[in-house]
Design a protein around this nucleic acid. Structure first.
Lengths: 165, 165
DNA sequence: GGGACTTGATTGAAAGTTCAACCATCGGCT
DNA sequence: AGCCGATGGTTGAACTTTCAATCAAGTCCC
C-alpha cells in the first residue's frame, strides 16, 4: 500500500545514533581506558622493564600447570593473534623469562614455559601492577559500580569472545 | 617501644592484593575492552579503511570551529603523544582527509584541518562506528550499569588525566 | 593408504607506535 | 635588547603489531 523501500533496506540504512549522554559515557570509556592502560604500562616498564602484554603472558603462564601453556591457548587467553604471541614469546625467550617446549600429544604443538627467572621477575612486577589496578581503578569505583563494570565487560567478552584470529 | 621498620617502610612494602572477585572483574575489563576495541577497529578498517585512532581524530576535527585544531590540543583530546599525532596526521594528509595550516597567533603552532573529503569519509564511517558502539557496548548494559561505567571512567580520567606526554 | 582440508606455529615485510634528539618560537626576567 | 627555560612540533631510528604467505602435522573420508 506504499512505495517506500523494503523493510530490509530501511533497517540497513537506519543507524541508531547515540544520545548525548551515551556519547559522553562512550568518550569517557575511550579516554579512561586509554589513560588507564598507558599508566599501568608505563609503571610496569619503568619499574621492571615489562610491557602490559608481556606481563599478562607471564601471569597466565605462572598460573598454568607446569607453568606452561600452548601458544594457541595463550593467544586465546590474552586475546592476541597467534603471530603476536610468537613474536612476544621470542622476546621473552631472549630475556630468559620463558623457554619453548615441544608438546607431547601434538607434533605441531609448541608450549611456552615460564622459567624461574621469569617467575621471579613476575613476582616483583605483580606488586607494581596490583597497586596500579587498585589505585587507578578499584579506588575509583564503589562496590556496586565495580560489579556493574564486571557484568558489562563479561557480556561484551561473551558476545565478541573467541574471535577472528 | 618496638623495633619494627618505620611506618613509611611498612607502607611501601605492603601491597594490597586484589580479592578473587576483583581479579575477575579486572580480567573481564582487560579482555572485554581488548575485544571491543579490536572489533570496532576491524569494522572501521574493513568498511572504510580507517583505524580507530584515525577515526577519533577526524571526529574531533569535525566538531571543532573551522574544523581545525592545533596539534598539541588534538593530542590532548585523544590522549596520544605529540609524535603519534604528527605521524597520524601525516598519513591522513597523504589520504587527503586533512591539511596542515599555520596557526595565526603562534608561530610554532600547526593546525590540522579537516577537508571536505575527510568529512565525507567520516560521515560514512560514523554509521559503522556508532552501530558498533551500540551493539557491542550499549546493548550489553542496563541504563544503571551504563551510568556506573561513565562515572568510573570519568574518575579515572580525572585522576590520570592530562599526563606525561 | 592417500588426497583434501583444517589447525598450529613461524616468518619476513609493511604499517604503526614509541623514544630520544632536535630546532624554532614563545614568555619571562634582568 | 638578550638570555634562558619551557612549549610546539617534527624527524628518524628502534621497537611492536599486523598481515599475508608458508610449512608441518593433524583429521576426515573414500
Amino acid at each position: 500500500m506504499n512505495d517506500r523501500p523494503s523493510l530490509e533496506l530501511a533497517e540497513v540504512n537506519d543507524t541508531p545514533w547515540l544520545s548525548t549522554e551515551q556519547q559522553h559515557v562512550w568518550r569517557a570509556f575511550l579516554g579512561g581506558s586509554t589513560v588507564l592502560m598507558d599508566q599501568l604500562d608505563r609503571d610496569l616498564r619503568q619499574a621492571h622493564g615489562l610491557s602490559m602484554s608481556e606481563y599478562e603472558i607471564l601471569v597466565r603462564l605462572s598460573e598454568a600447570p607446569d607453568r606452561s601453556i600452548r601458544m594457541a591457548e595463550l593467544a586465546a587467553q590474552v586475546a592476541h593473534s597467534r603471530s603476536r604471541i610468537t613474536h612476544t614469546i621470542a622476546r621473552l625467550e631472549k630475556a630468559r623469562m620463558v623457554t619453548r617446549g615441544q608438546c607431547s600429544t601434538d607434533g605441531r604443538g609448541v608450549t611456552a614455559v615460564l622459567t624461574d627467572h621469569g617467575f621471579a621477575v613476575l613476582a616483583e612486577a605483580a606488586h607494581t601492577h596490583v597497586r596500579g589496578v587498585h589505585d587507578y581503578l578499584v579506588a575509583n569505583a564503589s562496590a556496586a559500580e565495580f560489579e556493574a563494570l564486571g557484568r558489562i565487560m563479561n557480556r561484551i567478552t561473551e558476545q565478541l569472545g573467541g574471535r577472528s584470529f
